[in-house]
């Protein structure tokens, strides 16, 4: 993973001097070459296991001036740098924007400070910008090709929503998000009376995704699937705390116990009260916890326009008091 030299490297200025020796571990990715003289798996890990030993095993947690960099604690890729693009912490002339939280500083000849500079150590501040992977060295507002939407984030209602988008009422969801045709058909209409409640999914501190339902302690701490609703919605629907409820979307449904809280509050949307159903995600059919329905039987199959992160945080459901699942 670190990379090593299959052939020696001689100093171009003085051919009798060998700068890097054959068979040695690379000390960093700067020693990578494209002439076949280096064997390495992945450049970012270069420097993690050098001739000085296993850099990842280092355990010196000293932190000069409380900068929080811990450069001698294990290894961070690339090049043991703790914050990438850290030149952005300084102004055009290389002065820290905030002297009390200095990472780097241009001392007139080179970059000094607490972190490994993410810029050539002698590159003059006005010559090289912080975002070294962009040719212009600065961040981009207009991203040609790389992002589907932009330049600025704009607000769209979720694909399933109790109200239409006020700014662009005919636009549903983000117009440049990719949605498959059959998944469109599984979305409830905007403001649908069949699915009047906004739902969201979330995690509990005591569980990690669907893993810790296999863990005895975590299953004792949070043993059973539930949905969380407001006092107002519980009253309206005749649901008492601890009752079984059925929650369903246009895609699927689940049974769970109701937790009635003041934490979840009805929202006022476009002059209308919209209730919220909270659905923690952690249950399934195996493990140490009680059996429960996975939350994603409810959620829609759409993602955000750029990264396609699923829209599991905002969708529409209905809810009713129930006697629980048929065993």
């Amino acid at each position: 993973m670190n990379g090593y030299l299959v052939s020696e490297v001689v100093d171009p200025a003085n051919p009798s001097r060998m700068t890097l020796q054959q068979g040695k571990q690379l000390s960093g990715f700067g020693e990578y070459r494209d002439d076949g003289g280096v064997v390495g798996g992945c450049w970012v890990y270069s420097g993690s296991f050098t001739e000085a030993g296993n850099m990842m095993a280092r355990r010196d947690n000293s932190d000069p001036d409380g900068a929080g960099m811990y450069l001698n604690w294990t290894f961070a890729w690339p090049a043991n740098r703790r914050i990438i693009y850290n030149r952005a912490s300084c102004d055009l002339d290389g002065k820290p924007w905030d002297a009390s939280r200095k990472l780097l500083e241009w001392d007139g000849a080179k970059w000094t400070g607490y972190d490994v500079p993410d810029i050539s150590p002698t590159a003059k501040p006005r010559d090289v910008g912080p975002f070294i992977l962009n040719a212009e060295g600065v961040g981009r507002l207009f991203a040609r090709q790389l992002l589907r939407d932009g330049p600025f984030p704009s607000h769209y209602e979720p694909f399933e929503s109790p109200v239409a988008n006020l700014v662009a009422p005919k636009v549903r969801g983000n117009p440049v998000a990719r949605v498959f045709e059959d998944d469109w058909k599984q979305l409830a209409d905007i403001g649908s009376a069949d699915f009047p409640y906004a739902a969201t999914t979330y995690r509990l501190t005591e569980h990690f995704h669907y893993w810790t339902k296999n863990n005895h302690v975590n299953s004792v701490l949070q043993p059973e699937s539930f949905v969380e609703i407001s006092v107002e919605l519980a009253e309206e629907k005749g649901i008492a705390k601890g009752d079984w409820v059925r929650v369903w979307s246009k895609r699927g449904g689940l049974f769970a116990k109701a937790v009635v809280t003041k934490r979840i509050k009805p929202m006022l949307c476009d002059g209308r009260i919209v209730h919220v159903v909270g659905v923690p995600i952690h249950w399934g059919f195996v493990g140490a916890a009680r059996k429960g329905f996975p939350a994603n039987v409810l959620t829609p199959f759409v993602g955000d326009a750029n990264m396609e992160t699923p829209e599991f945080k905002a969708f529409m459901v209905n809810i009713e008091a129930s006697t629980g699942p048929v065993a």
């Binding site: 355990r59 947690n61 932190d63 929080g68 811990y70 604690w73 501190t205 005591e206 569980h207 990690f208 893993w211 810790t212 296999n214 863990n215 005895h216 302690v217 975590n218 701490l221 195996v286 493990g287 140490a288």
Partner: peptide, 25 residues
């Protein structure tokens, strides 16, 4: 000694032994 957590763990990390010993492993 770890700079990230200084010895602390959340309820998931604190119960790690039981994921090692999980009956459904």
């Amino acid at each position: 000694d770890h700079p990230t957590n200084r010895g602390t763990l959340c309820p998931k990390g604190a119960a790690l032994r039981d994921i090692v010993k999980s009956e459904t492993r």
